[in-house]
């Protein structure tokens, strides 16, 4: 399990070992959702899009 800091509150976000680019991770402290932007040596995250009216299956 790797870790990245929340850009909002600096909380510690856990990133599972099998996580891939495009997956969503949540900050356990402030609840903000982030999308994994890059996963390599470093993990980059960006704010996740909020749920749209047209989202679903």
């Amino acid at each position: 399990m790797r870790k990245v800091n929340c850009p909002e509150c600096d909380g510690e976000i856990k990133v599972p070992d099998d996580a891939v680019k495009g997956e969503i991770v949540a900050c356990p402290d402030c609840g903000a959702n982030y999308e994994i932007e890059e996963i390599g040596k470093e993990i980059k995250i960006k704010p996740a899009e909020s749920v749209g009216e047209d989202w679903g299956e």
Binding site: D18, V20, K21, G22, E23, I24, E35, A48, E49
Partner: peptide, 13 residues
Amino acid sequence: IYDRVRWEEKALF
């Protein structure tokens, strides 16, 4: 093609 990787997209991959 995805815009959010759900469990399903990982399973397909």
